[in-house]
Write a protein that binds this DNA or RNA. Sequence first.
DNA 1: GCAGCGCTAGAACGAACGCTCTATCTAGAG
DNA 2: CTCTAGATAGAGCGTTCGTTCTAGCGCTGC
Lengths: 233, 233
Amino acid sequence: MAQMAQTTPTPGPGADTGANTGTGATTGGGATTGTRDRIVVAAARLLQRQGYVGTGIKQIAKDAQATLGSVYHFFPGGKEAVAVAAIAYSGEEFAVLLREALSSVEDPGAAIEACTAELATGLRESGWIDGCPVTAAALETLGTESEIQRACAAALGGWERLVEEKLLGAGFDAADARELATTVISALEGAEVTAQVNRTEEPLRMVGRQMARLIGTYGNEGARDAGTAAAGR
Amino acid sequence: MAQMAQTTPTPGPGADTGANTGTGATTGGGATTGTRDRIVVAAARLLQRQGYVGTGIKQIAKDAQATLGSVYHFFPGGKEAVAVAAIAYSGEEFAVLLREALSSVEDPGAAIEACTAELATGLRESGWIDGCPVTAAALETLGTESEIQRACAAALGGWERLVEEKLLGAGFDAADARELATTVISALEGAEVTAQVNRTEEPLRMVGRQMARLIGTYGNEGARDAGTAAAGR
DNA sequence: GCAGCGCTAGAACGAACGCTCTATCTAGAG
DNA sequence: CTCTAGATAGAGCGTTCGTTCTAGCGCTGC
């Protein structure tokens, strides 16, 4: 999320069938990515902004500079199949961001706080519309037996695992790491929504500070330095 | 819990909806009827489950046992006006639940934890579909200039204020109370989504525990006034 | 040249959407 | 009794939805 450019290095971690001949691209000038990739990226972006129901197949095709025929050629499963691929893509995209933020700072709490700062900046720069790529799609399809929820759960679980591993690496107890990871990811999700609705970075920054403080309270085993700046007052 | 709507999971032929003529508390003599209330309640329930775009006006009318003409009679503003009223209703509905949970326990952290437990139970009993009533609608309409986001922001802000006041009453510093309130509400929102997607109560229970712990870290320096005894939990 | 194939292209379908419209019913005032 | 405004009822408008369908394009192998 937060990344505007569709020139991102196309993570495409799974099920990336090379396949793209790239011969077409009648109008697409310059370095053309494969049609399939363009569809996935466009769908991810639209899903993030308008949700699953609010995004039409034709709009996806148009934004991807593809035609309806191409969409159904690459995704015989229709709209749902496109959405699943898009969510998986978005999930990995944010995982990259999260991984970088977590590895750039040694202290887990400070790393989380840095992550919220980055999210806040990206959110503001997007005009408060590019939120969590999976939340909206997940909420809309809960009542159905859609495959989409599974994709959302996988993305969420992957993010939690990244945080959990970071905590484990810092010497946290296994149970604590798991509970904290779930808490951190949930809080980040909620803070993103709150920030979007109120059009302000504050919720994300507040939650970042509080999560750092929370993580800091566990500094019993590992030789952790004093809690970050949150010990104010 | 203020259960104003039936918990019939399936839109059965029902008709058991209480004949609520004049349910409106503020009957200053207006020509209000039960139909309007039924529309609002049905819309709130559908919005909660399917989001704004995924819910049709005709479905609202059908579930409310009203007709399209009645819906447009009471809400000349159309679908958006119905949604705004429904979100305000849902917001107050959860505010009641939150107020009760907060006032039933003296310690703020324990009260929040009790609230998450109640949310978890309700979510499980609904089959993981009755989540936060404003999140889905909010996310779908962020890109537009809809009035809906304002209603969602108002609901969220009201909930935060309830938590904030509870903390202030427990002797918290004003800045701490505000930041904690935002964090708690955001975390609750995110935890609800995570719980729904994974179909388990664990995220809510974990977040409840961690929020209680986080709130508890603010009590050690003193600053608690006489009214509250030592930290309960 | 010419089949074969991956991919592009868009017309067309039935269903559902939000909304407008007219018509009917009900209840109270004169 | 009539009159009238509020409320109910649903047919139907134009649009858009997801999907299917049939051509046609550019390229490869022969």
